[in-house]
Design a protein around this nucleic acid. Sequence first.
RNA 1: GGCGGCGUAGCCAAGUGGUAAGGCACGGGUCUGCAAAACCCUUAUUCAUCGGUUCAAUUCCGAUCGCCGCCUCCA
Length: 472
Amino acid sequence: MLRIHNTLTKRMEEFKPVENGMARIYVCGPTVYNYFHIGNSRVFILFDAFRSYLEYAGIKTTFIQNITDIDDKIINRAKEEGIGWDEVAEKYTAAYFEDCEKLNISRPDRSPRATEEIPAMIEIIQKLTEAGRAYTAENGVYFSVESFEGYGKLSGKRTDELMEGARVDVDEGKRNPLDFALWKFSKPGEPSWESPWGKGRPGWHIECSAMSSRYLGATFDIHGGGADLIFPHHENEIAQSEAASGKPFVNYWMHAGYLNIKGEKMSKSKGNFLLVRDILKEYKAEVIRMFILSAHYRGPLDFSGETIEAIKTAHSGIYHTLQELENYSAAPAASEEGFEGLKKAAEEERAKSIKKFKEALDYDFNTPRAFGVIFEAVAYAKKILGTKGFAVSEGSKEIMNGLASWIKEMTGVFKITPEIKPVDKEASDLVKEIEILRSEKKYEEADVLKKKLDESGYMLKFRPMGPVLIRK
RNA sequence: GGCGGCGUAGCCAAGUGGUAAGGCACGGGUCUGCAAAACCCUUAUUCAUCGGUUCAAUUCCGAUCGCCGCCUCCA
């Protein structure tokens, strides 16, 4: 049974999808005016992993993630770069897809772009104006927050308290300072689209309401995003969507905690960010994903070189063990041994382990706990590899294959399975030479070759059944 | 000012009232001609502090301290 912490109720709830065996998910995507940073990637990686787990657990998913390709920041960026706003959007949309692909993030089922969904937005705005819940003012069409009783239910804010807030702007001819733009009239020279109210561009929040309902229905299962979107973005989405449809908008709201750096939230405006494409130059996607998934999604996660190095080492441990399992099993079977008991024990262990893995993820996607299970499986595999009398044979080969597939079943869910390439012939030849020299007690010459092996990125591991060559 | 989060070993990090997962590092040891990035073992009577509820609290309640965040764009 899957349980999810719902921001709306602030409780852990059993997941009951609108349609049995199906999860319809919408996650707020990027505004394409810059490359995305490791903080932005947290949400992308997290929901990609959750989606992957749901599929693994037998729940089909429909996953939509928007691309905000028109907005003030894009327009400003275009001015800075001296190119068209659409060129900016195009450039960073392409970069977003590139970076996501490098991070092993699967493509959403759809990646709708705001500028291509304007008719759907106009439709909602029209419903709202007809119902008297939106009005036209000097600078645009606004949603009337007063008209929506449940305003504040997601963020826990009260309208009267918000009104006292000094930072709510009061201009633009809005009837109420809390009212927000559905449609912004364009100034000369700005990009614009036709609408029943005049030329302009959509407000920030309306695109998500339009796209989610268009592709997932008026009520869908999961809406995700960073915690910084709870207010006002998601609060406003709820207001305009529910006011227009008269139906509950989203059943489960999920919000990811911040990615911090030196204890402070990483953000573009603070300038303390690290771009994913730069980090990818130093660390593999698997390590970055593992880093993101090493903390529970709702809590804060601090990025530091020290932490990601520790994760890198831990990931190498999985890599090394997996290689041993595969490289030994590639060896020809020598003698047959009776490993039935061991095989049975390993299979039982695997069943228990997979159960624990699922339990961890079924409990509000507890990825750190799931990692604990993965490392326990790796430790179990190492224990078997270190068992005295465990020799290369048909039977042990089968056990090792089983161990490898068990570990990969779990790492596969997170898409952190290291790629295992067979060792080069030169390297294995080197090992043979070293063994010959060692048997002849020519240690100095052997050490020269050992150093060479080391420099070419390999290491020898010694097990009761003999040495095995693996990549570092 | 309003609202929210966090504080668990040297560091990272789980913990669903029943007696502290896991990772990294350290230390000890093993294999080895030597060595190791290899292998094994060990490492929190204690969960920011102080009270309370309970047979039992890291978990629930209250207060205090510290850090971070949202209330404006932000994933």
